[in-house]
Structure formats: C-alpha cells, structure tokens
C-alpha cells in the first residue's frame, strides 16, 4: 500500500467537499448559532449565552433520554453480537444453501425502517398480530402501547430481528477468510470445538467483529424511525431515545435554542465515537497491510 504523494488529487475531492460542506457545515454552523440564542418565532433572535446548555445539563429530561439510549444500545449489543456469531458459525460454508441463507438473512436489512416499525406494530398487536395474539392466548399479559416493559421488549426484539443478520454476515465474512488448513491442523491436534472457536475463529473474526460492534453501536445510538413508528416514544417517555426526544423538541415544539444545544452535545458524542471507529479501522487496515 504505497501511495504516491500528489497534492493535485485535491481537485478530485473538490466536488465531494463542496457537496458535503453544503449539507453538513452550513447546518452545523446554524446549529451553533441557534444554540446560544432564544427566539420567539419569526426569526427574532435574542442572545442567551450558555443558558440552554446549562439548563439541559441540569435537566432530567436529557439525562433520562441518554440513560435509556445507553441502556438500549448496551442491551441490543449484548444480544446481537453473540447471537450473530452463533448464527454465523452455523451457516453453510458454500453451495446453494449458503446463497439461500445469505438472501433470506439480508432481507430484513433492506426493509425501510418505518416498515420495520409497521411490521412489528402489526405483529405485536394483541388483536391482530401473531406474536401479540399468541402471547395473549398463552395467558401472558402483553400490551406494548400501555406497558413500558412490553414496549421495551418489543423494541429490542425488533432491533434484534432487524440487525442481527448484519453482525452474522460480517462474522461470516471473517470466517470465510480462514483457510481449511487451519481446521485440518486443529483436527489433527484433536482440538475441542471451543478451542477451535477461541484460538482460530475468534482471532480471525476480531477485525470484522470490531467493525460490526461499532456500526451497531452508532446506528442504535441514533435510532429514530423504528421505535417512533411502533411506540411513538411511549408509553409515557419509556422508549423516548435521544433522537426521538430531539425531534420532539426541535420539530414538535420548535424550541430552536434548546434543540440546537441538545443537537450539539449529541453531535459531540457522535464525533467522539466516530473518532474511535476511525482509529480502530485504520489500525486494522495497517495490520492487514503488513
């Protein structure tokens, strides 16, 4: 991977730069501007200083949303990563069945997010949904529109349904890169299944798994559409995650100042995680390059 130094390459990047500057830099500057001002509609702005930041940092609303968000991300990672690896280990290695599994597993990934919400909204309803109806017949009280625990379980199961395949597909790609010779060597050594997993498969998957974990964390951290469609953030505020809360504030109440301050803090966290993600990825690239 030896690249030549060529500063003229900048010209090739210019279109992207212009486009992304238009759609990212200008809005972000606006957000910064709004975050230090108060407005009473009609573009009348008043200087508010750091008031909104101060207010938000001491408000339970944001910390609660952040807490729910972190809990949600942690739970889905704890389920999806092991489950994804488990599924990947059981996928057919080659042939028609491998393609068949790949296609079916990819399907949930390609469904529009609001339709994912709709699917589970219908699926979970006690009167018309298969899941809700079955649970009801089994005598389990389940109503995701009224019971916060049920709402949480629905949202989590939905996310597991939606995204586990991604972890599985990435882990599978990692497994595919292991030469058969490794397994033969392990067989000669009569290594146990666990040892094969621990010392051959897991190290080979480590890189892609890292990517999978970070991707899942990022995407779950900004999840909006699916829980919004299913629960609308409720019952009460039980499933109001960061994005849902922010949209409520920004577009529902049109509180420009607080919403902008909220956005900025949210974005800072995202920047931090992106940086970790990038550092991990470049280090992986380097290791592979050696």
């Amino acid at each position: 991977m030896d690249k030549t130094v060529n500063h003229k390459a900048w010209f090739l990047v210019l279109p992207v730069l212009a486009l992304v500057a238009f759609s990212a830099v200008i809005p972000l500057m606006t957000v910064v501007n709004y975050s230090v001002q108060d407005t009473f509609g009609n573009n009348q702005f008043f200087w508010a200083g750091l008031e909104w930041f101060d207010e938000l940092l001491h408000s339970e609303r944001m910390w609660d949303a952040l807490g729910r968000q972190l809990a949600f991300s942690a739970i889905i990672l704890a389920i999806e990563v092991p489950l994804g690896i488990f599924v990947a280990l059981h996928m057919p290695k080659r042939g028609v069945w491998a393609s068949f599994c790949l296609v079916l597993m990819s399907l949930p990934l390609l469904i529009p997010w609001n339709v994912v919400g709709t699917i589970w909204q219908i699926f979970g309803r006690v009167d018309i949904g298969l899941l809700g109806h079955t649970l009801d017949k089994l005598g389990i009280a389940y109503n995701y529109t009224q019971d916060s625990l049920a709402a949480w379980i629905t949202v989590i199961v939905m996310d597991v349904w939606h995204w586990t395949s991604l972890v599985a597909l990435l882990a599978y790609a990692g497994l595919q890169s292991i030469p058969d010779a490794y397994y033969q060597a392990a067989r000669i050594d009569q290594a146990s299944r666990w040892k094969v997993f621990r010392y051959i498969e897991l190290p080979k998957m480590a890189g892609v798994l890292m990517i999978a974990i970070l991707l899942r964390f990022m995407d779950s951290f900004m999840i909006y559409t699916e829980p919004f469609v299913v629960t609308g953030g409720g019952p009460g505020n039980a499933t109001t995650f960061l994005s849902i809360d922010l949209v409520k504030m920004a577009l529902g109440q049109f509180d420009l100042g607080p919403a902008a301050a909220f956005s900025l803090m949210y974005f800072l966290v995202i920047l931090l995680i992106s940086w970790v993600f990038y550092t991990v990825m470049t280090n992986l690239d380097k290791r592979e390059g050696v």
Binding site: I26, M29, T30, V32, N33, Y34, V36, Q37, T39, N43, F45, W47
Partner: peptide, 15 residues
C-alpha cells in the same frame, strides 16, 4: 443568510 442567525461571538468562534 438571515435564517442562520449569526451573532458576533459565534462568528468569532468559527473564525
């Protein structure tokens, strides 16, 4: 540019 609601402090910040 009106809608961006520039203020002096934020302008200094970006500068």
């Amino acid at each position: 540019m009106d809608w961006m609601a520039w203020t002096l402090p934020t302008a200094i910040f970006f500068a």
